[in-house]
Simulated assay, not measured.
Amino acid sequence: MRTVFCLVRKMLKPVDSLLKRDDLWLASQWQQEPCGIATGFPGLDRHLARQGWPNCGVVEVLVADPGSGEVLLLQSLMTPAQDQWLLLICPPFVPYAPAWSRKLDLSRLLCLTELDRKEQLWAAEQALASGSCQRVLLWLDALSVSESRRLQLAAERGDSVALVFLPLALEQQSHPVGLRLRLTPEPAGHRLQILKQRGGWPQSPQRLPLAPQGWGALPARDAATLVQGPW
């Protein structure tokens, strides 16, 4: 009997270590997760474990081409708290200030450019863990398991959200993050699939009519007048 008890204790040790991993979840956690941040798409909220975007952690979005709608998908996360910052790290495009100003206070927006890959990851990790950058947007060509884990831990320490945009070619890689999505444009909108989520299951693809919400249309400018000179 003593031998059997010792064997059971030895078996429980590796099980306990598995339960502490960030990339595994228990079925009972589904009802324990706090409410998330509404996405602006009620159908999508119903498929997310927190009924919305997570309040902290890493959200990976796999895109075919940068600038193909990923910011519109996550626009409900683009407004940080009054005393917090929104940080963009090496975006593939120049943010259009007049449009962004209709969604957030530009004095709370930071944009870092011309950083090498090591500097990008360092800046993201420091900002997430600081407690002052509530949202960090990061565009990368690749991300290792150890790098994604460091970002996840930094976001949890700072109670912040990292939005990491990666190419579709990395879909088969497994990263210990809270939420992983695939976004592909279509003629009638965008197709979104939840590939992985903590506290929930992967979901079938769904179509989303991505459009600016709250960004507002820019005022029309007066028509230009052509003046004919003496030349």
Rank of each mutant, 00 (worst) to 15 (best):
L192D: 04
V164R: 01
Q172M: 09
A217I: 05
A224T: 12
R157P: 02
P230D: 09
L168E: 07
V177N: 02
P176W: 00
G158N: 05
R198Y: 02
V227M: 07
P205N: 14
P212Y: 07
R149M: 02
L151G: 00
T225C: 13
R207C: 14
P202H: 07
A211N: 10
L192T: 06
G178N: 00
A211S: 15
Q197W: 05
F165Y: 06
G229I: 05
L163N: 02
G229E: 10
Q197P: 11
G214C: 09
R180W: 11
Q228A: 09
R191W: 11
P230L: 09
A211T: 14
Q173S: 10
G229D: 08
A154N: 03
R149E: 01
P230T: 06
R149I: 01
T225A: 12
P167R: 08
A169P: 08
E186T: 15
R180C: 08
R150T: 01
D222N: 10
P202T: 07
P176D: 01
R150V: 00
V227A: 08
G200I: 00
P185H: 13
V177L: 03
R182P: 04
A224M: 12
S160L: 06
R191V: 14
Q152F: 02
W201A: 02
K196Y: 01
R149A: 02
V177Y: 00
A155Q: 01
P230W: 11
G199P: 05
S204N: 09
R149C: 01
L179V: 02
L183V: 13
Q173W: 05
Q152T: 06
A223P: 07
A169W: 07
L170C: 14
R149G: 01
R198I: 00
R182N: 12
Q206L: 15
R198D: 00
Q152K: 05
V161A: 01
R221G: 06
A211G: 10
P205G: 14
R207H: 14
L195N: 05
R207S: 15
Q197E: 06
L195K: 10
L179A: 04
W231G: 14
L195A: 04
H190Y: 13
Q206M: 15
A220H: 09
P219L: 06
D159H: 12
F165V: 08
